[in-house]
Structures are given as C-alpha cells and as structure tokens.
Design a binder for these strands. Structure first.
Length: 587
RNA sequence: GAGCCCAUAGUUCAACGGAUAGAAUAAAAACCUUCUAAGUUUUAGAUGACAGUUCGAUUCUGUCUGGGCUCACCA
C-alpha cells in the first residue's frame, strides 16, 4: 500500500534528522483535494512533544535527539523532514509543506491509472485487512424480531445495518457468522395467546400467511390491553406465560403453530431484504440453561438473592442492579443472555468477537451481562462482546407502538415506496421492487447508526438526490455507455502520458480511495461511510459525464474515459453490494 | 436522585482534533434533434450558551439550557 510507503518514509526521515521516530504517524485524506491525496500532521504533533520536553527540561524522555533539526516551529520541522524524505517519484509526484506544518502528498497520475487498470483486471476487490483477533472469525447478531409481533421498520433498519456490517467485515477478510436471537417465550407471547384463546376464533379459518400475521398482531394488542385493564386477565396471562415456560401440553399446540407462522413470515422478510442467517437462536431453547447458570453463579457469589429474586448488584462496578431470575423463578432477559453467550461462543469454534446490533436503551443491560460473563470466564468472554447501538426509527407523527397499533410494517413501507416509484417513473415490476428496497435501505444506511431517524414517508425515503436510485441510475448510465463501446472493452488500457483534466482526475482519485473507505467502514462499523463515498463518486462521475464526451473523443482519451466509466460502475455496484443493495442493468 | 446519548442551513442529515463546516430537500433561473434529464450548472442559508485545554475545537473537558433513554422482577 502506498500509504504505508509514505509512513515508512516519514519514519526514516525522522530517524535521520532527529535520531528518533514516532510510533504512530497518521496519514489522512484531506477533505479538500487542494491539499493532496494524503496529508500528515505529524510535524505539528511531534513539534509539540519536543517543545514540551524542552520547556519541562526532561531531556531523558527522548535521549539522543538532534535538537537543531527540529527547527523553531512545526513548519521548519516539516520542511526539514521533507528535505530528507526519499519516496519513489513514480508513486508520489509532489510533496508540499503548508502552514502551520502540514505535509501534503500527491500520488502520481500514472500510479492512480495503473491502480484502476488493475482493479478492472481483477474479479475481486482487494481490500486492506482488518481483524478483531487471531481467529479472524466473528459473529454479527442482528434482526431479532420477536415472534407473534410485526416485522416493522425498526427491524428493517436493524437488518439493513446488520447485513451491511456483515458484508463489510467479510470484505476485509473475516469469516462472519450471521446470528439472530428471537424472543419466542415471555409475557408478550402470553398476551397474544391469551387474546387468541379468549376470542374463541377458529384459527383454521385463516387462509394465508398474511391473514394469520394480521390476526396475531391484533390479538397481541387485545392481550396487552386486557393485561393493563383487567386484573383477572392479567392473572390469566401470567398463568399462560408459566405454561409456555413449562411447555404445558395444553398450550403447546397453539404456541407451536402461531410461532411457526411468525417464523415463516420472518423468512419472507429476510428474503425480501436479501438477508439470511447461519443460526436462529430462540429464547425457548436457552431459558432453562439461563436459569442453571444464574443459580450456579449465585453460589459463586457473582449474583445474590434479594427480595425473592436473583440479582446482580452492580454498584461495586459502577453498574446498575439488574434482575437475572425473577421472584417467580423464571430467568429474565438477563438470565437468558448468559446461556446465549455460552452457546454462541461454542457453536462455531473460537470467535474473536460477537457484535450485537441492538438499540441503545439496552446499553445498561449489555454492560451488566458483559461484566458478568467476564466474571464467569475471563479468558473466554473478556473484550469479546460489542454492543453496536443503532437508533430508533421514530414516527414524526408520534411514537410507534405495537400496543397502539400504529406500527409501520416493513413490507407495507416497501409497497408504498413501490407505488411512489411507479407513479414517477416507468419501469417493470422487478426493477420497481429492487429500487424500492434499495431506496428504503439506503435511506437508513446513509445515516450514522446513532442517528435517530424521524420517519416521514415522503421525506425520509428519497428517490432522488442522495438516494439509492441516484446511485443505481449512475451505474446504469455507465453500463449504457459501455454497451455502446463494447468493441473497446476487451482492449487493454495502455494509458501513456495523457494530460488529464480536473473532471477526470476527480473521478480517478475517488476510485482509488474506495478500498480504504471500506476498511474505515469496517473499523468504525459504519456503513454510512460507504454510502457517503458512493454518493460523492456518483456526483463526481455525473459532473464529468456532463462536461466531457466519452464516445466521441480522440482515441487515447476515449480509452481512458471508458476505463473511468467501467471502474465507476464496478465500484458503485460493489459498494452497493456492501450495503446490501442490488443494482439493475437498465432503468 | 444517579447515569448514558443527542443538539450543525427552514427541514432531514455529513464532517479519524485539522486547512474555506459538506450534501440533500424546499425557492429562483439555465441546460434535452447531442453517450439515459431518475441527470447537470448557478444563486442564498448553520455549529444551543458560557468558560477551559490546544498551533488549531462541530469534535476533547467543565457548567448551563433544551430534547431522548436507562436505573429490580418486560423483552
């Protein structure tokens, strides 16, 4: 990597002039292209370090330093560094020192072109690697809808985020396992089943999946309301809850059947959003073990008894107190989590990390369970769990709540966006479907995971501007140009000494940045970095396209511009893939 | 009461402690017999308040204001 070359060069240069070299040298890509392809602030950072040493008269800190070459200010230090800097001039074409001490590097056009040419020759993209540990294996846990409830737009944001994070982490060289933890026992299920039993409705009359899902959704609302308003109903629901936990044969058939409806329905959703899972975990399969573990660690003193429940007293760790087994003897979400972790860490061999894609109000919960797992087995669990907090999709008109029945179902939203697209543009059903899913996913992913989305159907799901259709349109535009020049595509790009204009260079430089952007996205678990990058690239390409003829230009120029076009298309397609978004070839 | 998160153009969002704070949208205008106008160009607009650290603060620290969330038997 050229970046490493520059850093190495800077280190050597430091060693030469001050007989010392900094451990970390950061090389950033400036937001303004006037400042080159890479920029380093190391002269300013190190000058401060040296200066502090001087003032505090602690010469022992950095022995043997040549103070003369440091100069009187960061700018002089930078200048001295650059004087000694030896870099391959076929890679780096220009180095500049700018006040107050930035060192800016320009990559040579030839090198940029040869990179893009390589990119087009290869099938797969070559990303810099990023791992969490030596196993190079991690699990991303996401989606987790609860059975007997709707798959709503919050889940859609979750699955979009999770799927994208998986693909990004795979790209940078990890084996990634997709996990999905679903609540299929507990009070919410009991409420739903209570509603069904109480309604006296013959569930065999429900003909298809959609009717069944609507039905259990309604019954959940009924049960929830009854639980709050009617003391008898509440007692009955608690009883049903107990029956579910104890697998009472009286409730099992209804539980099993309705649960399966949900799972079938979820599967349809996963498919529609291009996701799948290596392992579905259920609360029903782990709650027993959760109870056992809680009791085991109660004996070890990690948990304690309090008011009939088994709790964790988090005070001594600066954490909250949370209940693991309630006074009725059932494991809570916390208790179950311990069993889940045990299972997840043994099902797929050694994992470096488990990333939990869950909303932020669970922060306290995860802090506590991570801590307890660490207390149970430090080697096995410590620093191996991460809570990737993604924010809510809130309705502008008010809050979403299953109880009030104002939940926006994911499928409903996609269908609405499909209507919107087909009203505005002419395209076939298949294209509309892809564009609608793309629009919605992109609308979520272009935001940071920590941004609360204030949802409004007309404003939030953009089909123009910074949107998926814009990116896909740009891709299609590239393909269209290439198609008209198909006889050129097999020719190799032997670009020698062309004078590139600024429009071309803008696109060329951006294409070169792609692999590093993906690495950044992996590092920060931030798909939105890729989304923003793609938008930038598409904008630059469209600008170039508008101002420059491709097909009707002089032979060498034409070859080069076709190459840019091909590379742009390739990067957009790959970038969208990493976001979990499909492209179309024509629209 | 304790703790966590958030505050940037009218609105919705960007910006590893970096250089001139970027977009989209809403508004006005221009560009289609010309490689897909789902496109492009031009014009206007913002870091809640006060301190501190720093060569440099939207970013870090403190106080305040205003939102959201969590803190024992839901998941």
């Amino acid at each position: 990597m050229i970046k490493d070359e520059i850093i190495k060069g800077l280190k050597k240069s430091f060693k030469k002039i001050v007989s010392y070299s900094p451990k970390d040298i950061s090389l950033e890509k400036p937001s303004n292209s006037n400042f080159g392809d890479y920029s380093s602030n190391i002269a300013m950072i190190e000058y401060r370090n040296f200066a502090i040493d001087t003032h505090s008269h602690v010469p022992g800190n950095k022995p043997g330093i040549n103070w003369v070459n440091i100069g009187n200010n960061p700018f002089e230090l930078a200048t001295n560094l650059v004087k000694e800097l030896q870099l391959d001039s076929t890679l780096v074409s220009k180095i500049e020192v700018v006040k107050p001490g930035f060192i800016n590097f320009w990559i040579s056009d030839e090198f940029l072109v040869s990179n893009v040419s390589d990119l087009l020759k290869k099938e797969k993209f070559d990303y810099p690697k990023y791992h969490f540990g030596k196993n190079k294996k991690i699990m991303v846990e996401f989606a987790h809808p609860n059975t007997h409830k709707l798959f709503h737009i919050g889940h859609l944001r979750n699955i979009s985020t999770g799927e994208s994070v998986v693909r990004i982490l795979e790209a940078v060289g990890n084996k990634v396992i997709r996990g999905n933890y679903q609540g299929d026992v507990g009070l919410h299920i009991a409420k739903c089943l209570y509603g069904i039993r109480n309604s006296q409705f013959d569930i065999n009359k429900l003909n298809n999946l959609q009717e069944r899902i609507e039905f259990i959704g309604k019954m959940y609302s009924v049960g929830t309301k009854a639980y709050e308003d009617d003391e008898n109903a509440k007692q009955e629901i608690i009883k049903i809850n107990k029956m579910i936990y104890e697998r009472d044969p009286e409730i099992m058939p209804l539980w099993t059947e309705t649960r399966q409806w949900s799972l079938d329905y979820f599967n349809e959703n996963y498919k529609r959003f291009y996701s799948h899972f290596d392992r579905l975990y259920f609360e029903s399969e782990i709650h027993q073990r959760g109870l056992e573990i809680s009791k085991e660690i109660l004996k070890k003193g990690i948990l304690e008894k309090s008011q009939g429940a088994i709790v964790f007293n988090g005070k001594k760790y600066g954490l909250d107190t949370r209940v693991f087994v309630n006074s009725l003897g059932f494991p809570t979400y916390e208790g179950k989590e311990l069993a889940l972790a045990e299972k997840e860490f043994s099902d797929f061999g050694d994992l470096d990390k488990i990333i939990h894609t869950v909303t932020p109000e669970q922060t306290s919960f995860f802090k506590v369970t991570f801590k307890i797992e660490e207390l149970i087995d430090e080697k096995k669990y410590k620093n191996k769990q991460y809570h990737l907090a993604y924010e809510w999709v809130k309705l502008k008109a008010g809050k979403m709540s299953s109880r009030e029945g104002n939940v926006i179902e994911a499928n409903w939203l996609i269908d609405e966006v499909k209507k919107k697209i087909s009203e505005k543009f002419k395209c076939d059903e298949q294209t509309t479907e892809i564009l609608a899913v793309a629009s919605v996913k992109y609308s979520f992913l272009k935001n940071g995971t920590q941004t609360i989305i204030h949802f409004d159907i007309d404003e939030s799901i953009a089909v123009d501007g910074n949107s998926a259709p814009y990116l896909i349109y740009t891709y299609v535009r590239c393909q269209s140009v290439l198609k008209k020049a198909s006889n050129y595509l097999t020719r190799t790009y032997d670009i020698d000494k062309l004078n590139f204009n600024l429009d071309e260079l803008g696109v060329l430089r951006l294409i070169n940045q792609f692999p590093e952007i993906v690495q950044q996205a992996a590092l920060q678990l931030s798909p939105n970095l890729i989304a923003n990058y793609l938008y930038d690239l598409a904008q630059k390409y469209n600008y170039f396209y508008q101002k420059n003829k491709i097909l009707e230009s002089e032979e060498k120029t034409k070859l080069f511009r076709l190459m840019l076009t091909q590379a742009t298309g390739k990067v957009i397609k790959e970038g969208l893939y990493l976001l979990g978004i499909k492209t179309v070839e024509k629209m």
